[in-house]
C-alpha cells in the first residue's frame, strides 16, 4: 500500500472512531465536554488527514466513512431500542388553519412571493455584486464567476429562511430591499 492510500485508510478509520467516540460521549447520562471535544477534534483531524492524503476527494471519502459508521450505530439503535413510552410532540407548525381560524390566502401568497422569487432576485443581485467585487479585487475571472454560481443559491436559501423566521411584513421587505440596494450599488461601481 502506498503512502497516500495508507493515509487515506488511516483517516477513514479515525473518522469512524470519532463517530464511535461521539456515540459513547452522547450516550452518557451527563455530557462530558472533554470527551465531546476529543471526538470532534478527532473527526477534524481525520478530515485534515484525508485532505492531506487526497485533497477534496480524500475529504469526501473520509466523510462517507464517518457517515457509514454513524448509520451503523443508528441501525443498531433501531434494532435494539424499545418503543418510546411518551407520545410524539404535537407542536403546531401553523401551516393550515384549525377550527375557525382564517385561511389567510393573501398573506401566504405574499410570503411565497417574498421568499421564492423575491429572495431569488435579491440573491442574484448579491451574487453578481460579489462577482463584481471579486473582479475589482483582482480575483481570477473563473474564481469570480464560480463564486457567483455558488453564492447565489446559498444566499437565496438564507434569505428565504430569514423571511420565514421574521413574521413582520415590514421587516421582511426591508430584509430584501436593503441588500438589493447595496448589491445594485456595488454592481454599478463594478460595471465594466
Amino acid at each position: 500500500m502506498n503512502q497516500p492510500s495508507l493515509l487515506l485508510w488511516t483517516s477513514a478509520l479515525l473518522a469512524a472512531a470519532a463517530v464511535c467516540l461521539l456515540r459513547f460521549s452522547w450516550g452518557k447520562a451527563l455530557r462530558s465536554a472533554p470527551l465531546n471535544a476529543a471526538a470532534w477534534g478527532l473527526l477534524a483531524f481525520a478530515l485534515a488527514m484525508g485532505m492531506a492524503g487526497a485533497g477534496a476527494w480524500g475529504v469526501a471519502m473520509v466523510t462517507l466513512a464517518a457517515l457509514a459508521m454513524a448509520f451503523s450505530c443508528l441501525a443498531l439503535a433501531a434494532a435494539t431500542a424499545p418503543p418510546g413510552k411518551t407520545g410524539a410532540s404535537n407542536r403546531r407548525a401553523h401551516m393550515l388553519p384549525e377550527g375557525q381560524e382564517p385561511l389567510r390566502i393573501g398573506g401566504r401568497m405574499v410570503s411565497f412571493l417574498l421568499s421564492v422569487p423575491g429572495a431569488m432576485l435579491v440573491a442574484l443581485i448579491l451574487g453578481l455584486a460579489a462577482r463584481g467585487a471579486a473582479g475589482a479585487l483582482g480575483a481570477h475571472e473563473a474564481d469570480g464567476n464560480v463564486l457567483m454560481l455558488f453564492l447565489m443559491p446559498l444566499l437565496w436559501a438564507v434569505l428565504a429562511m430569514l423571511i420565514l423566521l421574521w413574521p413582520q411584513r415590514r421587516r421582511q421587505v426591508g430584509l430584501l430591499a436593503a441588500p438589493a440596494l447595496l448589491g445594485l450599488a456595488m454592481l454599478w461601481m463594478a460595471r465594466p
Binding site: W26, R31, L74, A81, P83
Partner: peptide, 20 residues
C-alpha cells in the same frame, strides 16, 4: 437534534418512531 443523534426508536408509537 444533535443531542439525540444516536437515539432511534424505530417502532412507531403515536408518531414517535416516525419523528425519530
Amino acid at each position: 437534534i444533535f443531542r439525540d443523534a444516536f437515539r432511534l426508536r424505530a417502532r412507531d408509537r403515536g408518531g414517535l418512531g416516525l419523528a425519530d
